[in-house]
Design a protein around this nucleic acid. Structure first.
Lengths: 214, 214, 214, 214
DNA sequence: TATGAATGAGGGTTCATTCAT
DNA sequence: TATGAATGAACCCTCATTCAT
């Protein structure tokens, strides 16, 4: 979805707070808490006081660790997208066939949903609006890269006659993309299905359909 | 998704404002405007002043027509769901076979997306959070009804051997549901594809998959 | 001190609030109140709540009339500088001799102090820091114009042998400038001396000194 | 301007911190740093973090050395006023003639500006507001003493016919006072003029005026 | 019907200060 | 001596809402 600058954890290194180097553990904790709340209540509807409550501190104390509510959001999304692209890039560089690539990408996606459920949910709900802001331009950038990867995979597949040629490729792209990511809105980690199992079923539906074969 | 009480436009008829009778046309206009803005910016991020700006009036003036920002949202969603269920109920009462029912529901859904794009987008983005409020209990109610309709259709189809039996029905339900509605997030009315055409392609993918048959 | 763009009362016409056209009377009242408080407590030490208290309203209500505390400050200073330069320009265009020019400028200055005591006091105390901000660049611009006017007057006087040539002109400039404007810090309108009377005495000291002539 | 109690560096010796005894050198350094920042940015606009940054430490660490930001300010001003009055008292006890007294006081003032530029600038900008607080009552006290010294000198001069009798003495006092101290706002130590040189020029203007003698 | 002005309850953020280490 | 982390009060500002006109 994105290809942010390699190093990005400081985003806007304005002040000289220890925002970057020091105590990455606490930082992570707080970001996880924030992500959870953002995902549950929506970014706008979430107050920093709520985040602070969940973290067992006062609202002002968050500003020792972060520049702003927005910078928390940014870091949550950047961290997620970085990991996501680590996985995707590995797949894309493996030179698999189109069908195997699709399977690997979908499976990787469900693994990310499993690991970053909150971040994915936030991404789903907020990215469209956010992408308009310069600060979140990396979201749009990621989306473009994402689209290129999928479209080329689908086109390769059509050329190789493993995917149907009678379908509009862009529609198919959206279909597959949405099909995967919306899962974040209902997926609960630790449920009865592992990410791989869910991926398998989704792939089965996407590839072979839900109708019984004639 | 829901079947609210027949009359629902005032929800809480406390005050004496003529919120109901007078000039239903202007009312509709304003709601359409509001829906457009809500869809574009998100409900929370939208200020009543923005709505008023788009409508060419001052923020306070909206309160002649509506009780509150929330009541505008409620009416937008109720109106949409009412129409949606009009269509769905017609389908469900037609006693079609499971596959034909699924096709009809999906087609009807894309028609609603075409007609109520803004409302659908709002619904997609906000319904989860809203459903927790008593005022928006009708959203949860609608969702339950929606789920029942789909699940029973799918189960009928599995029993009739027109849908695959090796798939988790709930997963399949979510798959189909999401697959359809997320389209509202990118669909633009007046584009090159008619709702029926999009429905046909979606159905083709959902039913038969995107892979080439062996 | 400044030569702002001819029209400047909107400074940053971001939103479409009636900040500009409507109700200039109330606006003036509020700005006068604000100026008084800024002058007395200092800009930074003044809270918008204090201003609102003095105006008999709530803090938030000020934002119906103004964009921000800073925009109030800006408008106060712009209005003052505009009037000041109206007076100065009239003097400078009159082609008086250097001594008469100096007398007229000083007199005009005391009149402005009389009319805009609060604004002058604010200007004295805050302009140095403010001028660094882009928004208040007009302060620096005014200062440059002010300096040019004074320096050229002094130089003309030296050339015409009405001012002493053994003094450093820049030092003299600062001497005269400060001497006049600091008066705003103790001047109270409605006191026993009229601005013209004070100007006369200042001029007497500046021109002829306080020592008895040999 | 003031004559504070002989010992004044702790003002309120409440806690047990070694604020007084330990390492007076470091203390001085920190106060000089703070004074510089206060002078440049204004007391209110200066955060303790900014001071700490300039001193190469963290904000909290300053509290090992000082009770509060305010106590730093107090000590800066007290130290300055103490030295100033050392000089003034020496002059005043010398029983010089009125003109020579005036010359000596002005010269001494420019020497203090040279030595304590930052403190003087702070004094100029903040003393009026500060003097209202009990803690800074010494500022008002100093000002009174200052005024007495100058007024009596001027009156002595008028009586001795070395100063003009046609001028309002209080106005003249303010004129001379302001004339001297505002210099702190633009004076930069190490510039091309020595304090004594500047004093000489100022005195020349104040005593004999800037106009060419008839 | 709509305006203009105000309310009042927060919301994000800053900052002097504290304190255990 | 200094750090790192947190506190808590206050601050500027936003915004849904009200109401007299």
């Amino acid at each position: 979805m994105d290809q942010p600058p390699r190093d990005h954890n400081g985003s806007v290194p304005t002040k000289k707070k220890p925002q970057v180097a020091a105590a990455p553990a606490r930082r992570r904790e707080l970001l996880d808490t924030a992500a959870e709340v953002f995902a549950e209540q929506g970014y706008n509807a979430t107050t920093v006081r709520t985040i602070a409550d969940h973290a067992g501190m006062l609202a002002g104390s968050l500003y020792y660790h972060f520049d702003s509510k927005e910078s928390m959001l940014e870091e949550i999304l950047r961290t997620f997208l970085d990991e996501l692209w680590d996985g995707y890039d590995t797949v894309l560089e493996s030179e698999l066939g189109p069908r195997e690539t699709l399977e690997a990408l979908v499976t990787e996606s469900f693994r990310e949903i499993d690991r970053h459920r909150a971040a994915v949910a936030i991404y789903q709900k907020e990215s469209r609006q956010l992408a308009a802001q310069e600060r979140f331009a990396f979201l749009a950038e990621s989306q473009r890269k994402f689209e290129r990867a999928w479209l080329s995979t689908l086109e390769r597949g059509v050329a190789a006659r493993v995917f149907r040629s009678d379908l509009d490729v862009r529609l198919t792209y959206r279909f597959v993309r949405d099909t995967v990511w919306v899962a974040a809105s209902w997926y609960r980690p630790g449920g009865q299905h592992s990410p791989e199992e869910i991926a398998r079923q989704y792939l089965s539906m996407v590839l072979d359909g839900i109708a019984v074969r004639a």
